[in-house]
Simulated assay, not measured.
Amino acid sequence: MNTFKDDKQRAILKEHKVIQSLATGPTVFDETFDLGNFKKKFGIVVVRYEHYEIEFDLIGIHPSLVNAFRRLILSDVPSMAIEKVHVYNNTTIIQDEVLAHRLGLIPLKADARLFEYRTNENADYTDNDSLEFELKIKCTFNKELNNSSCADDLYKNNNVYSKHIKWLPRGNQLKLYKEIDVGPIHDDILIAKMRPGHELDLKLIAVKSCGRDHAKFSPVATAFYRLLPEIKLTRQVEGEAAERLQKCFSPGVIAIEKNEAGKQIATVRNARYDMSSRNVYRYEDLKDAVVLSKIQDHFIFTIESVGAMSSDVIFKEAVGLLKKKCLCLLEELQT
């Protein structure tokens, strides 16, 4: 079945099922892979880019490759995170293990590409494979203010933030890095609350690893993809029905415009933002007016970095890792 009669393979969303709309020509889903056709059809289009977030389209690519990139980003692209916490003094109400877990989840600015993996867990930490920090803080009464009931006025250092973590350079690190380049990404991450008499004295060791080892080493807050939605109006919808049709979709998907006769009609403005709710099938008079589908080789990919590396660099690292894994597999097959 091919409702659209073009070279795109689609999944058509019916009220209670999904059916396939086969393409008229060869696609990435064909059994025989042709590198020349892949190069002609494959494309990357950056839709939105910020330092910490990127949204781009992968066009003409098999879902298995897209999912491989997603999994590599989450599990194999390395980052730096606090791994060891030496507790010299902790008189707060937070248990040592809970405190260590919270510290490990604080994202660091340090670029993992500049460090080495630790191959021997029993070996001493070096300036090439680790970063050392300290967190030393004590809560006291604020003697300057006595007429306030606010904790921030009554006490000093009652809130412990990530900005209180100080870098202790070792070896040649002071010549290579600056504290602003290796410390916590955000200064206002709350670690603990204290009262007079509470004190923290900790030494923190950050190492290089990946999300496969622990989620705290994943360089992204999330990385996900979805198929590009497509909406086709099969007939003109006007008046009150057009307003109902507009409310069936996410904001910005359906627009209402005036035609030459002055009637308000529904038009597809941007199907990209549709979340495929299929609410339109609730109305008997609108069911036959719309064809909902998803293009099966067009992916909307979103990466949200925690801040150590920009989102586009993370994707490039994932591509490089996939290439290394493929070369390693080829070497194994040849031996």
Rank of each mutant, 00 (worst) to 15 (best):
N37W: 15
R244V: 08
H51V: 12
D153A: 03
V280M: 14
C139A: 08
K325V: 13
R278C: 06
M309G: 00
Q20N: 03
D201K: 06
S149Q: 00
Q236K: 14
I94A: 05
V46W: 06
F42P: 08
P78E: 11
I59N: 09
K14F: 00
K136Y: 12
D34H: 12
L202F: 12
K136A: 09
M275C: 07
E121V: 13
C328G: 06
V253D: 13
S311E: 01
E243M: 11
E240N: 05
S64A: 14
D312H: 09
G60T: 04
N90V: 01
L228S: 14
V66I: 04
K156D: 08
Y281D: 07
Y117M: 15
G183R: 02
L333R: 14
I231F: 02
R48S: 13
G252T: 10
F115M: 04
L114A: 01
L329P: 12
F56M: 05
K287H: 05
V237N: 05
L145G: 06
P63S: 02
F56E: 04
D129Y: 04
I300D: 13
P107V: 02
T222K: 15
E83Y: 04
D187G: 04
K247M: 01
E257Q: 14
E50N: 09
S21K: 05
H186R: 15
F141H: 00
I137K: 00
T234R: 14
E179I: 00
N90M: 11
A318T: 02
I205C: 08
S130K: 10
H164L: 12
N37M: 05
I189T: 06
L105Y: 05
L114H: 10
T91E: 09
K178Q: 11
S130R: 08
M80L: 09
K40V: 01
L190M: 14
I314T: 14
E55S: 11
A266Q: 02
